[in-house]
Design a protein around this nucleic acid. Structure first.
Lengths: 147, 147
DNA sequence: CCATTAGGTTGCATATTACAACCAGACAAG
DNA sequence: CTTGTCTGGTTGTAATATGCAACCTAATGG
């Protein structure tokens, strides 16, 4: 679980988060959490992974403050896992992953699920990167700078 | 490397791409590719990972059509790895990951690198999800629908 | 009570990862 | 054309993570 980040990457905001969500299952757990799942058993049923693995992943996500445990909402003595503010901050990332998946991992003939605006029931707009002044930015229009 | 996607997830555009980029290193390789790195040795020096692992990752990325190999640009007999169109499609995802990392993985006192608009040298705008009609969307304002 | 469900933990087999050594094909110098 | 070095890998082999099944305890349901 613990990966060693090379010295060069210690200050890179792309590398650091990978300890928290860099494995296969964590993003799917977060996706399901956005979908409203809260209970250990719900996640396990949805993902079909071994319980010890789910347990480890949930623990890791809680340690990294992506999820937090709260008393069960139905009054039982069990606990539930809900997204923290930090966890909710993953929404754009998940949408970006989803849009990339839609674009490149499905043949036109294949059906897939898509994210829609609850109010209108229409697909959401495509994510795009813009400059402060609103210009659309391609990868070549940007670079990383020490700050 | 090959993960079995549970039946329930077969149609989810979040789950499928994880075969291609769901591991720790692949996203860092893609980040470096956006940064202009092209040669095996450049990636290895930048990431500090074992050569066999890098070799496997590059192979996987090429198989998934995220990278492609081209003859070296300096005229030598070696090859280089460059992003495909599909690979370039990962740009928003990488930006989302970077912004999340900047927000939650650095103390204010800590320095980090940041993505800037080449033309003005100013930080880029924050990614945000909008509906077709332009309304800003929070996670609660959306749901996934079969399509 | 007794049975069942929720939410795990523990062993153990297997697969993945990492590190290091090795190696073959350019390439460069003499 | 021969020696040495760099590039881009491919083997070992050891450490680690993963997956599966069995087990276990506390809640809950009847």
């Amino acid at each position: 679980m613990v990966k060693r980040i090379s010295h060069r990457d210690a200050l890179c905001p792309v590398a650091r988060p990978l300890d928290a969500i860099g494995d296969w299952w964590s993003l799917l757990i977060v996706r399901d959490a956005f979908g409203g799942l809260r209970r250990f058993g719900e996640f396990q049923k949805s993902l079909g992974l071994a319980k010890n693995i789910l347990s480890a992943r949930l623990k890791n996500l809680v340690e990294h403050d992506v999820l937090e445990t709260v008393p069960a909402s139905d009054g039982s003595a069990y606990q539930e896992y809900v997204l923290t503010e930090k966890g909710r901050g993953l929404f754009p990332l998940l949408v970006a992953l989803r849009q990339w998946g839609e674009d490149y991992f499905f043949r036109p003939s294949e059906g897939h699920v898509t994210l829609v605006d609850r109010k209108r029931g229409k697909p959401v707009r495509r994510l795009e990167l813009r400059a402060q002044d609103g210009r659309l930015l391609e990868p070549e229009d940007t670079y990383v700078k020490a700050c």
